[in-house]
């Protein structure tokens, strides 16, 4: 190999590192932080109010960490997400199953569910506030309500997509109606359950933030809202970054792998 070839190979390796995977992500992160800092330092008139620099956001996080409020806000939000999402999914799966098993029931309740799905959780928020006041219950009901529909509809279509042949095969082996549900329909609907879970948690995440903001319950949503009320823009930015990063981490490291693993393992259709 000549030295020119070696040089070329080295250049190529750098180019590859810079345009793929982890290297690209690092360059992107560093680049956007520098860009943010430049904008806040040179383009904005009152950066403290309109766009604080990355440093002041870090300082604000250190401050909140020291006071202990950051951890408590964060855990409040996550606990709400988990409880509300879990209950919504726990109700959604059996409802979806019931609708999927019986065409008569499905035809009867599908339009109703369709209507209430388009009544978004945020829109019914004022109604829930009238019923339950500005309480944790209100926020939880809104989360539960938003996470219920995606999973229910996905389970319904998942059960419907199980080939009739599988059910017939189980029947000829002497399976009872319950056994057919347990051994054929539920596993067959597994991929849809995974897809629905991811969607449900996604909707729930938005609902948590909105609910906390509107009801004024402690949490990330409230943190960014009070940042606006008390003129603390660094706190708003910190909250926004945490909201975005949490969702990306949750989605890419928990929900998506769960979804693809389930589809791979239980999938009737290879994607």
């Amino acid at each position: 190999m000549t030295s020119i070839d070696l040089q070329q190979a080295r250049l190529f390796k750098w180019k590859k590192f810079a345009t793929e995977g982890a290297g690209r992500l690092i360059i992107f992160l560093v680049g956007s932080i520098i860009l943010w800092w430049l904008i806040s330092a040179f383009l904005i008139e009152r950066p403290d109010r309109y766009l604080p620099s990355p440093l002041s956001v870090v300082l604000s996080s250190a401050d909140m960490l020291y006071k202990g409020s950051l951890i408590s806000f964060y855990s409040d939000t996550l606990i709400r997400l988990v409880i509300g999402g879990a209950v919504g999914i726990a109700i959604g799966i059996p409802v979806g199953l019931a609708l999927g098993l019986n065409r008569f029931v499905a035809d009867m309740f599908y339009p109703l569910m369709n209507f209430f799905q388009s009544v978004s959780g945020i829109a019914i928020f004022p109604v829930i506030v009238i019923w339950f006041g500005n309480s944790d219950t209100t926020v939880l009901i809104v989360i539960l309500y938003t996470s219920f529909f995606p999973i229910a509809f996905n389970v319904l279509s998942g059960v419907r997509s199980v080939p009739v042949r599988y059910i017939q095969a189980a029947r000829t082996l002497g399976a009872s109606r319950f056994q057919v549900v347990r051994d054929v329909l539920l596993p067959g609907a597994m991929p849809s359950i995974a897809v629905g879970t991811r969607l449900s948690i996604g909707f729930a995440w938005r609902a948590v933030i909105a609910g906390e903001m509107l009801a004024g319950r402690p949490g990330l949503g409230n943190m960014i809202f009070s940042g606006q009320e008390f003129d603390n823009t660094a706190q708003i930015l910190l909250g926004m970054v945490m909201i975005g990063v949490t969702w990306i981490v949750l989605d890419h490291f928990l929900l998506r792998p769960l979804e693809s693993d389930t589809i791979e393992r239980w999938g009737l259709v290879q994607r």
Partner: peptide, 10 residues
Amino acid sequence: YPDEYTGESV
């Protein structure tokens, strides 16, 4: 041309 994976000249 450079190989897509190794970068070696093909």
